[in-house]
Amino acid sequence: MLLAALAAAALGAEGIAAKLAYAGGANILTTLSLRFLLAAVMFWVSIVIFPVQWRLDRPTLVRLVALALGGQATTVLLLFYAFQHIPAAVAILFFYIYPAVVILLAALFLHEPLTRAKVGALALTFIGLLIILGFPMGSLDIRGIAAALLAALGNGVYLIGQNNLLKRLEPRTFNTWATTAIAPAFFLMALTSGNFSLAFNNQALLAILILALICTVLAYTAVAWGLRYIGASRLAIISTLEPAITTVLGFLVLGERLHPYQLLGGVLILVGVTWQQIRS
């Protein structure tokens, strides 16, 4: 549970660091390219210093690369596409349907029990998300809604596939190959679209380093080990802490407004997470 909460906290800093990178002159594809390149280098260095079995047979490698590109990389792109067409808070709200996707897929494919505790906790945490992020108001672009929902589905599939592969792979091995597959994919997209540029300031550089070290290496490591200990469905419920953490960090770092009702939403998420843990 602590590892899952640590992953949520690390990923909660993602939106803040991304905003700082963009404000410093870095564009989206350049930021993603450098983020995953630096993360891949850090994972390979860790394997050199603390050796593990990193060689994979061809079927496993193909499956891992397909999961990384079709799951994680596609999820990130869909979510950023959603941000372009609907408000970020609304996109995140639709995206966080993915814990429900994970719970259903885990029950179907991983034989994780679908308990009342999980369903109740999921309901509480989603109500908390509604309070923190606000109810969608006005007309919304269907393209943004579709992209956010597809991102939720992609992230759910990625977590289930990752959980399955981690039964046979050491977490660092999985994350090393996953980031190694994702980095060149984003580089190729940036280069072919003419969006790769190193014309950014030190603030953007620091933000990209935070994205690589905290939001990728630390977060992905905590997610992988968390999956091993508590399974996909329970980890997905605990991950709903992430928007609450992002809201608090936005207040502390960027000076964004923090309304009292958002604190209530955070409390509901904490209650839901704690309740499902105690019942489990």
Score class of each variant (00 low, 15 high):
Leu129Glu: 05
Ala91Gly: 08
Leu165Trp: 03
Thr179Tyr: 15
Thr125Leu: 01
Met1Cys: 13
Ile210Lys: 03
Trp275Ser: 12
Arg143Glu: 07
Pro59Gln: 00
Leu188Trp: 10
Phe83Glu: 05
Leu130Lys: 04
Leu32Val: 07
Leu133Gln: 01
Leu69Ser: 07
Ile103Tyr: 09
Leu258Pro: 04
Phe186Arg: 01
Ala232Phe: 07
Leu108Asn: 13
Phe196Leu: 08
Ala17Gln: 03
Leu150Arg: 03
Gln84His: 12
Met137Arg: 15
Gly231Ala: 01
Thr192Met: 13
Leu79Ala: 04
Ala39Asn: 05
Gly25Thr: 00
Gly194Ile: 04
Trp54Asn: 14
Leu159Ile: 13
Ile47Gln: 07
Leu77Phe: 02
Ala68Ile: 07
Leu153Arg: 00
Val273Met: 10
Ile142Phe: 15
Leu227Ala: 07
Gln277His: 10
Ile103Ser: 14
Ala207Ser: 10
Leu32Gly: 02
Thr125Pro: 07
Tyr81Glu: 14
Trp177Met: 04
Ala13Asn: 11
Gly71Cys: 05
Ala219Gln: 01
Asn201Met: 07
Ile49Ala: 11
Val48Leu: 13
Ala23Thr: 05
Glu256Gln: 14
Ile132Glu: 03
Leu241Ile: 07
Thr192Glu: 07
Leu133Asn: 05
Thr240Met: 12
Pro136Trp: 09
Ala66Pro: 09
Leu105His: 09
Ala23Glu: 09
Leu227Met: 09
Ala21Pro: 08
Ile269Trp: 09
Gly144Leu: 12
